[in-house]
Design a protein around this nucleic acid. Structure first.
Lengths: 173, 173
DNA sequence: GAGATGTTGAAATTCGCCGTCATTTCGCTG
DNA sequence: CAGCGAAATGACGGCGAATTTCAACATCTC
């Protein structure tokens, strides 16, 4: 890296090539949306990103952001993720290792992790049932360290404290 | 078991106790919905169950079925599961082993599986990050044996066949 | 069995997703 | 660099699932 500030040259390159190959067009909106997406390290919903874009160019509409995120997904720059709240979030995908998510049900913190052992076992299980694995998703819900200690402190005062878990029965996907 | 036909006594008992403890009321609708839910072994959406109930008592509305399923979930008799099609399904939970799901992206078949190794690794990963694991969900997407062989046969005829995968980029949850 | 309170069910609302369409913009060509 | 055809844009609206509202009703308690 020659500069301290990231300029996302390679990502933009990937996007341009995808645009080219798919016979699509290069537009100012798409550039702006990509730029802001890359600058933001968090998991973003289409709506979240819309507001970030809106701050810099209020003429860009929801639809364009929505469609551009799909485009980024096709280009391999973004990845769709769902955390169980019904919304679709996007995260950086290019040059990012595959990973799964661990979510704190108290504060909403999201930790990304990767376990090669689990990956291998998934392949094994799939093979046992004759499946050819194409994707998988895994989500671990629990309490993060901070919320755990905070809860213990509270329990010191009030004994039968409520578990205060927001995500109730979203055990599924 | 003394009778061949399942009468779900214990499940009904659990439900009654939950109703009691929560200060709720025992109603004919709830009984009927529970009964039909228990009789049906598949993954049911609220809508699915509504129609089954409707056949036996057409006066019961969508809302009641919807709310009763939530109630059953709270009571620990049902579990919500989502397979990525936007709908929420429910499966039996009481006295049912925990398991995860493997879904065929071609025919929609759902296989339940359980891997103690994966479970243990999840605990381990959570511990590494200071998390106290409360739930988790895991979904493996792929092609089942039948669809795999069918695809191979088709590939014999048409060479560059499309992968025909319905679930595109639903990598998340 | 009467009153308090929880429950029911139709309808309406909310919310995210996605298609439509008139208008604008891009990128090529001459 | 002007013109043209195709693609992109953005406002709007439809759709389906989830959820809330509210008046009528059922259930439990005393």
């Amino acid at each position: 890296m020659t500069s301290v500030k990231k300029d996302f040259e390679t990502e933009k390159q990937v996007f341009s090539e995808h645009i080219q190959k798919a016979g699509l067009r290069h537009t100012a909106q798409r550039d702006l949306i990509l730029e802001i997406f890359l600058r933001t390290e968090e998991h973003l919903s289409s709506e979240d990103l819309y507001w970030l874009v809106h701050k810099e160019d209020s003429s860009v509409g929801h639809t364009t952001v929505y469609r551009t995120l799909k485009l980024l997904t096709d280009a391999g720059l973004a990845r769709e993720v769902r955390f169980g709240d019904g919304k679709t979030y996007y995260e950086h995908h290019y040059n990012h290792e595959h990973h799964d998510h661990m979510i704190c049900t108290e504060c909403g913190k999201v930790v990304e992790f990767y376990s090669p052992e689990i990956e291998a076992l998934q392949e094994k299980v799939a093979a046992e049932y004759g499946f050819k694995l194409t994707h998988h998703s895994m989500r671990i819900l629990g309490l993060c360290e901070d919320c755990l200690t905070r809860e213990k402190e509270l329990n010191g005062a009030a004994s039968g404290a409520q578990p205060r878990v927001r995500v109730k029965s979203v055990v599924g996907i």
